[in-house]
Write a protein that binds this DNA or RNA. Sequence first.
DNA 1: TTGTATGCGTTATCAC
DNA 2: GTGATAACGCATACAA
Lengths: 342, 342
Amino acid sequence: MKPKKTTIHDIADKLNITASTVSRALNNNPRISDTTKKAVLDMAKDLHYQPNNIAAALRSGKSQLIGIIVPTINRSFFSSVIRGVEEVANTLNYRVVVSQSYEIFENEVATVNAMLNARVDGVIASIGKNTKNYEHYTNLIKKGIPLVLFDRTTNKIGTSQVVIDDFLGGYMATEHLIQQGCTKIVHFTSSKKVNIYKDRYRGYKEALNDYNIAFNESLVCKGNMQLEDGRIAAEQLLALNKEFDGIFSSSDYAAMGAIQILKEKGIKIPEEVAVAGFSNEPFTSFTDPALTSISQFPIEMGRAAAELFFDMLHTEKKKFIPQKTVLQPELVIRTSSLKTIK
Amino acid sequence: MKPKKTTIHDIADKLNITASTVSRALNNNPRISDTTKKAVLDMAKDLHYQPNNIAAALRSGKSQLIGIIVPTINRSFFSSVIRGVEEVANTLNYRVVVSQSYEIFENEVATVNAMLNARVDGVIASIGKNTKNYEHYTNLIKKGIPLVLFDRTTNKIGTSQVVIDDFLGGYMATEHLIQQGCTKIVHFTSSKKVNIYKDRYRGYKEALNDYNIAFNESLVCKGNMQLEDGRIAAEQLLALNKEFDGIFSSSDYAAMGAIQILKEKGIKIPEEVAVAGFSNEPFTSFTDPALTSISQFPIEMGRAAAELFFDMLHTEKKKFIPQKTVLQPELVIRTSSLKTIK
DNA sequence: TTGTATGCGTTATCAC
DNA sequence: GTGATAACGCATACAA
């Protein structure tokens, strides 16, 4: 019934050569003559030969698979990183296996394990917010499986990572608000445990310091960085009669939430309060006012992660030194912070 | 050097049983006694046994891999569909391999081929805009590999698909504008070759007809459905002095482009022109005015696609009848179309 | 430049 | 309820 799949043996038989020769010819092995190569390639086409990556993977120990672990796929930042990874993986004949942790530690562990079972050649991951134990990741490293962390990373395990300079991003956003005349700048942040928020916070403080503006801890709001958190924070600031003329939020969503509340209360943006977010989410250019933000170049980040991955793959484990690619953030100025020009 | 990976043979040796028994125990085969099962499981844990999916795949012919092909990963709609697929695949111990066609036909063909080489157990795909030849997909079907199409599908090849009722979506959006008092409604659409745009267009016409509004072809603008296309279309309409009091765009992006132009020209939305988009992109709730749109429930679409896939997987090829899941769209009313209440 | 032999780790078919 | 054996399709060490 089923038209039995053709293998290298079928090609070999037709050509009166051996399977090894066919295998070599297909892999463009230099020791095979051009004539045989051509004959093999032609016959492969004739027989509709379809290489079996699985068999090759079992034999060679290389699956040509890269595992990607992200909290959730349908967030612009993460899907863009995946896009970047896929772009370069694709050109090198690698496939990309994705899975989500949903910020749940157990899922993250399980998913690393699944990647291990699938025998991926390496893993590119962004750490979940609630992850404090990195054993599942160090396990990978112990087994000699390349691991590249991006964005939400950690220095506690020695592996390559790619991040943007979050400190600089925080600094740039804050500096920009200061230059627009703000002196009482609110900051929205999240858990200190997460490197990215910690660094953006540091950048904020440093900018204040450099411009001789006193740091006021009561203007720092902690939350979960969602739209709702921004709304709540803004409401509380107003309820407490805090004076402020600028907001630097570590998340575009929280910034947006604050903007909604301010608009509802009739507070003018940017005239009375200038706002800057972080991430340059696609929606930031569509809002009213359009939201100033910090671009993280997620596609480039994905490409960089893939490159670090292939570096690792081609380096002997003992010779390997963890690399860190730091991308430069970019301040994207939009109406929400443009006091002067308006 | 390398701590040789433990296999089922290692477990078997330690326990003085055979690999077959271990294999069966690990697969929870009913013919194995509970005591041996427990012994095997314990030993597996002790030896840090890590199943080799690749070997199992080669032997069994099942890779536990689902290939997903989308035009681009970092578009909210597509990444959300992927999320839905991954959700259900994950619970059934399947992994998801994603790749992008970038709307380029050759890429789509190549990527289907790559999936074939990777021996995925099936493919879930959304067809690229420029694809007119479906041979690469029919090839899959011929080989007995389950194929599920979603959103951008075709009836020309007999396979399962999941779509939303685009006709109904188009109808609902148009009807809503009519109910808001619009009588001269512009429609933004794209290539007639693509099922989704064709159907939304049909819905638009039908609604006009049902409400006794004459269809005016000069109010239909064709474009590529991007922000820029919406801007261009709106500019042309104004330049030509076309009278219109509503816009139903088959894309949120194009709708947004039109809104930008109308705002620039001082035309009030929704008072003078009411606008509705399609897709309910995340940004639609953040714009000003917030954009009325049609939700396509992408995560549910992904789940439905996965379910159709597993249905196919568990059905004999000869007994299989292509299924079509049609999801109901939902009108999400926002300020951009709310003439009455304002 | 090509052939021979072997094994990657698992599952499936028989046998007992 | 368990064992023995083969086979999945390919790549590679070694031989010629």
